[in-house]
Design a binder for these strands. Sequence first.
DNA 1: CTGAAAGCGCTAACAG
DNA 2: CTGTTAGCGCTTTCAG
Lengths: 340, 340
Amino acid sequence: MKVTIKDIARECGVSVATVSLALSGKSNRISQATRQKVIAVAEKYKYTPNNAAVSLVKQKSRMITMVSNDLTNPHISAIVMAVSRVLEKNNCGMISRFLESEPGGDRDLISRMSSENMGAVIWAKSLEIMDEQQTQQLDREITGLGVPVMTMDQYRLSCPGIDVCFDYREGGYLAARHLLELGHRRIGCVAGTRSFQVTQDRLDGYRQALAEFSVEYDPELIYYGNYTMNSGYEAFPYLMGQKVTAIFSMNDEMAFGLYRAARNYGVKIPQDISVIGFDNVPFADVMEVPLTTIRVPVEEMGQMLGEKAVEFIDTGKTEREKIVYRPQLMLRASTRKITR
Amino acid sequence: MKVTIKDIARECGVSVATVSLALSGKSNRISQATRQKVIAVAEKYKYTPNNAAVSLVKQKSRMITMVSNDLTNPHISAIVMAVSRVLEKNNCGMISRFLESEPGGDRDLISRMSSENMGAVIWAKSLEIMDEQQTQQLDREITGLGVPVMTMDQYRLSCPGIDVCFDYREGGYLAARHLLELGHRRIGCVAGTRSFQVTQDRLDGYRQALAEFSVEYDPELIYYGNYTMNSGYEAFPYLMGQKVTAIFSMNDEMAFGLYRAARNYGVKIPQDISVIGFDNVPFADVMEVPLTTIRVPVEEMGQMLGEKAVEFIDTGKTEREKIVYRPQLMLRASTRKITR
DNA sequence: CTGAAAGCGCTAACAG
DNA sequence: CTGTTAGCGCTTTCAG
């Protein structure tokens, strides 16, 4: 049986209250002598508090629930890893819930979460496009958890927390503009999951760039995938059929799918076709033709998410904050001036 | 305030005991009428039990602690993802602790874990090479957690659980033999972290293959990295200096580092040098020159880990089991017959 | 079939 | 400076 505060109290000949106080160190009502003794005994038996009991009485804990998409995407694992690092350092725990990248299912998730009494949640799931009513509904449910919530998008929540955003629109804009500046006019796009807000945002940026260059938007040039490598692979023949000279892929994973398909079809990147990705995962730089892409500062964003979660737990503050990160073009070798 | 069992009891005009019994459904001592009423009210208020309270009284929970190395390695994230999937399905939660791939620090980790009262732990951290005394010491500490422990290596623990192993030795053997069969004789090796047992195992396999082909083992041909891409990158010039014609990399990540370095040095794979990896991460197949590698069935292994954790929690069984998975050569394009 | 009561390990008033 | 006490939300005997 694990040693409890009671065992220590008995051994030291003091009450449990004294032990609790001595160990927490939060009060100087305890004499040096007793404190020292208590600590010594606690160490002797390698005492560690029972978190369930602590969080039951305190009504909160240093456990943080992290909700995110599928880890097989290195972009996601980078975020999770960054968050985890911060939490460990601040001795918080992390309960992770990795969801397959499919829309829906939040309802069930939230009810399960409400059983755990975590101190905060990091909701790093892609935001679905929602109408006003759905938005309010989700807000009500999430807010109902009664803890601060950090998100990775503008969820328009009313509970304490922060929205750590990225300007996907500008990212899409930068990507398309880069291609346009290289002279491309028929620019295909491998979009991600249709129902995600971030997909729409990138598309908006793409369209804005086209407009600036007076290129008409052609919906036939958009292929909707689901952010997996495989969907990039499938997009390739379709877009080639559309005679595009360049492709903007909404994430690097799908761009890699494009690479693989191009190899199969004997199409050379960037000689025959330019490709630009999005995310800047570590692998982008390993390919034989390093991938030009849009950098998303995942490390910084993950760290911010983690630090804020800890801060909200520790200070109990109640504001809702927001921060927006900006994209950056990583120019590498997969894009080039149009030759025809 | 979250609704508790007490609120429901009051609303239904019954005692808390009755509510508990009715909701758990484990007893037929409750009349249909009351049960129905209790359930209706619980749903109305979206009641969910407070896990802290439950686990405090039951002295265990359906929360599983998952300890693993750094997620930036896709091989690790695949395992974590597979585990997570089965836990979700069995409505268990997962507390994750991702450790940087450095030796040591288990001590602190275990004491932190002992505060959470999880139902099981999955210890998917690489095993360090240890002497008899250290082995016993670790066993004592881990066993001291008082819960079943699933590992990914032969930890020789005495607590309930399972060792889900992989035959790394045979993997190393297959890799080296493949190269030998292609006629290579000076075969470099990018080893992983020196202090890991799995590193030693792969090396043993490599040496065995050399012996079978009567090739003398040359320690100068071994470069110790740390399983990161970067260490593969650094290994390259060293091994080229040793005039090797082929390289066995102990994981795919490091092989990718080799790829990147080869590109920089203008060395062609496989024309100038053959490369074989280990793991078979999804990317291995995306490279312009798809990577020949040794497959580790991470999906199956992760699933086994998760299922066993659930099984041990649900049945309370106390044996210690063991299962060993076998390697498989994935022949692709990065290795070829020696031409000189 | 149902209620009362004890207790899981710990904290936080409130007394002393 | 230290002990007593009342609970946090829930399960589980043990009576009724």
